[in-house]
Amino acid sequence: MAEQIKLEAMLLTLERYAQEYQTLPQAKEKIQAVQEVLLAYQQQQLPVQPLPELEFSEDFLFEHLDAYPDILELEGTLNDLRQCVIESFGIWHIFSRVWAADLAAYLKQRPTLQVMAGNGVLASQLLNVLATDDFNWHGQDITRPAPWTNVVKIDALAAVQQYYREVEVLLIEWAPDSHEVDYEILRFLRSVKWAGELIVVGEKRGATNSKKFWEQAKLEKIGQLNLHHQPFDFIHDQVYRVR
């Protein structure tokens, strides 16, 4: 399949770069981190540590361009990581075991509903979480559902309306920006005066969630959940409590 061919090609390219840049620690660290992500996902596991920033500074590039004429191509390959992961595994949000452990500790096994859970990667790392998704992203970016855990097939708003009385936490992780179901969920929760906690992982007014949601949501960053949740590319997603 095309996605498997792309994955194998990227792994081969990274291995070649790993050999070429083994004496340049700043590059070697980034290459190894990207390799770890891809190899972990092949085993339906998470990388242990958060990714470092994958871009090089302009000064660093200028300093090493003569010795490494293909360093710009290396940077381009590293920055292809997210798209490769989307197409190969149907995963948009890349996070580590360390951050997943932070989230698990924060939730304290409170009954949690996750909507728009995709392949259930995050839910597979947590206890007492009901993961739901309608899988309408099937075929987008060549992706196809391959859940890591049980994911109930149901529309996000319908899931909230059905289960909100049974849970203490609602988790929305990397909701798409192509519709306003996140805003509809927020409006519904306010209408029923839901007393639970709404946690959203996304990029404010950026790659995730609808414009209307970000306009209406009252946001508070959750410090302990952003400690190991750092941007590694041009998308600066963070973890928020929403009122």
Rank of each mutant, 00 (worst) to 15 (best):
S57R: 10
E58N: 12
D59N: 14
L61K: 10
F62I: 12
L65M: 13
A67E: 15
A67C: 07
D70G: 03
I71F: 07
I71L: 13
I71W: 05
L74W: 05
E75I: 02
L78D: 03
N79C: 14
N79R: 12
L81T: 05
R82I: 09
R82C: 01
C84V: 15
E87W: 10
E87A: 06
S88P: 09
G90K: 00
I91R: 01
V98T: 13
V98M: 12
A100E: 10
Y106N: 13
K108A: 13
Q109G: 09
R110P: 05
P111L: 02
T112S: 07
L113I: 05
V115K: 05
M116Y: 13
A117P: 03
G120V: 00
G120L: 01
G120N: 04
V121N: 01
V121K: 04
L122F: 02
L122D: 02
A123P: 00
N128T: 02
A131D: 04
T132V: 07
D133P: 00
D133G: 01
D134V: 03
D134E: 12
W137K: 00
H138I: 11
I142L: 15
T143Y: 03
R144W: 14
P145Q: 04
P147A: 02
V151I: 01
L157E: 11
A158G: 10
A159G: 06
Q161D: 11
Q162M: 11
Q162Y: 10
V167P: 04
E168K: 10
V169Q: 10
V169Y: 07
L170N: 05
L170D: 06
H179A: 10
E180R: 11
